[in-house]
């Protein structure tokens, strides 16, 4: 399900100039391009631009003033902390899973790949719900946790866990096909020449997969910082404590503080733009090397 979502192997090659009989007639080209641009402009560009327009509606002063909000800064710090835990965790998992799948043969391999994809098929709301069922007051470990005064749900650990769940497949999905395509010959050579496992990984495998790894991390990070539904279920919405930046946007919006809501949203929109730019840059670098 994720293969359309992220695939570094997708090359963005320039259209080939075709003989006349194989070219679409001018009227058709203009019509299709018009339809495509109008659709993309109204459905994608307009929402992106409107975030900044709404944030600046009362002028730059009001926009900057809205950042004078301790709860907002706390939300930003929590979002960064969450991503700083979730992304490395899924990075290590993605590398381990890709190493096992790409370098060895074992029964149940295709089932394992399908199971890794599973979190993408689950609604974000359900991703949060299942952690409430496990760690919540009425959940499996609820009584034991409250006895030992440990809070997971409606606290930071729950937010981190739900974020790890929704971003679970990103790095693995990127690395598995990449490492399968690269095969095992270079690693065999390294081991034959006397390298141990870690030396082989860090000096042979890692340089080969670094772009795919970076690509997966960018996408994983964007989702980790932007996740709303799953985090909303487990957060408990305690202001200044368990609100991430997207949840803070929701609170301000529901309190009709539109400039503040869109100002906070503009930070997240900037993150999206940086993500798209980095993603294109990696695709471009990769295509040039392997093109």
């Amino acid at each position: 399900m994720a293969s359309a979502l992220s695939n570094l192997q997708r090359t963005v090659s320039a259209p080939v100039v075709r003989p006349r009989a194989l070219r679409d007639p001018l009227w058709l080209r203009l019509t299709l391009m018009g339809v495509a641009f109008l659709f993309l402009a109204s459905f994608l560009l307009l929402p992106l631009v409107s975030v900044f327009a709404e944030a600046l509606r009362r002028g730059v002063g009001a926009y900057l003033e809205s950042f004078n909000d301790p709860d907002g800064w706390h939300a930003l710090r929590l979002t960064l902390l969450t991503a700083a835990i979730a992304v490395p965790a899924n990075l290590v998992f993605g590398v381990a899973a890709a190493w096992a799948v790409a370098k060895f043969e074992f029964p149940g391999k295709s089932l394992l790949i399908t199971l890794i994809d599973l979190p993408f098929a689950v609604s974000p709301v359900i991703s949060g719900l299942i952690y409430v069922l496990v760690f919540g007051a009425h959940g499996w470990f609820g009584p034991w946790l409250s006895e030992h005064d440990i809070r997971i749900v409606f606290a930071v650990p729950g937010i981190v866990l739900a974020t790890i769940f929704v971003t679970f497949p990103f790095v693995a999905r990127e690395l598995i096909p990449l490492m399968q395509a690269q095969g095992k010959d270079e690693e065999y050579a390294a081991v034959t020449l006397g390298a141990n496992g870690w030396q082989t990984f860090f000096r042979v495998t890692l340089p080969n997969i670094k772009w795919g790894l970076f690509y997966g991390v960018i996408l994983c990070n964007a989702r980790a910082m932007g996740e709303f539904g799953a985090v909303s279920v487990v957060s408990g919405h305690i202001r200044g404590e368990t609100n991430t930046l997207p949840l803070h946007v929701e609170i301000l919006y529901n309190e009709y503080q539109f400039v503040g809501a869109f100002a906070a949203a503009s930070l997240l929109a900037l993150l999206a733009i940086v993500t798209l730019v980095l993603k294109s840059a990696v695709e471009w670098a990769h295509a040039r090397r392997h093109g």
Binding site: L44, F228, L247, Y253
Partner: peptide, 17 residues
């Protein structure tokens, strides 16, 4: 690159926009 915007833009931001 813009086509991927819905993957990159947090859903809450898309919602209020």
């Amino acid at each position: 690159a813009l086509v991927d915007l819905p993957f990159a833009l947090p859903t809450a931001v898309a919602g209020i926009a």
